[in-house]
Amino acid sequence: MKHKKNLFNQLLVISISTLIWVNLALAESDQLSGLEIAQQVNARDEGEAVSRNLVMEMIDRRGKKRVRETRGFRKYYGAEKRTIIFYLQPKNVRKTAFLTYDYPQVDDDQWLYLPAMRKVRRISSSDRGDYFLGTDFTYEDIKKEGKLGIEDYTWRKIGEEIIDDHHSYIVEAIPINDEVAKELGYGKVIYSVDSNIWMVRQAKSWDIRGNALKTVHTRDIYQVQNIWTAHTLEVSNHKTGHNTRFLFSDIDYSTGVTDDVFTQQSLRRGL
């Protein structure tokens, strides 16, 4: 009997301690600024390297759908990130490939392989507000992969909400100046950041004239090899009525990706 009473007391102490710790943690996260929330998003583990299939569905305002099947690889080299995407289907874009070296401080280096020309072309990295190969994602969106361009915006937490049954912080991001706003194509972005796993569940953007531009919704988020991973991204372009859906599959963080994948030779040779 005495033994049972001791066990009960121990459980009570552990439970109270846990509650206190959770409350302290929540209180601490409640005090996070918009910038700190953005930093939490960028600090989230996304693996050193990843390979994955990506199906891009592009639907115009009349409901006509185009589908692109791709395979992509991404790898970090310290603060530098290298990404390559190979188009597999349909035939008319097959073997098109896109390579980017994303540096933390200087302009990125980007190349595009166009099979009709059989040439690797250097492309300008400043066109980050341009739309990526017919989708509603910009080159910058593709490059960031769910992370945030902290240096491009001023950040402010403006509230909290429940998105897809998950508690989220609402963070307002305003470009630091007109030039950056013009480059990005956004005058304002409102991010809804999951306060538990630090992923952006929804992002609403406005153009530089203040008109509603796009809504990005992140769905099917679950862990792959212990890394929280979005499997569906949906974008609605409110100006054009065009929609894009990205569907990720065969995601692998553990096998590793060899360095020679991220070269112009690889871009030209394809998979």
Binding site: D107, D109, Q110, R121, R122, I123, S124, S125, S126, D127
Partner: peptide, 11 residues
């Protein structure tokens, strides 16, 4: 040779 400078690509 080729390189990108802002919106320009020189080649």
């Amino acid at each position: 040779f080729s390189n990108a400078f802002g919106n320009f690509v020189l080649r």
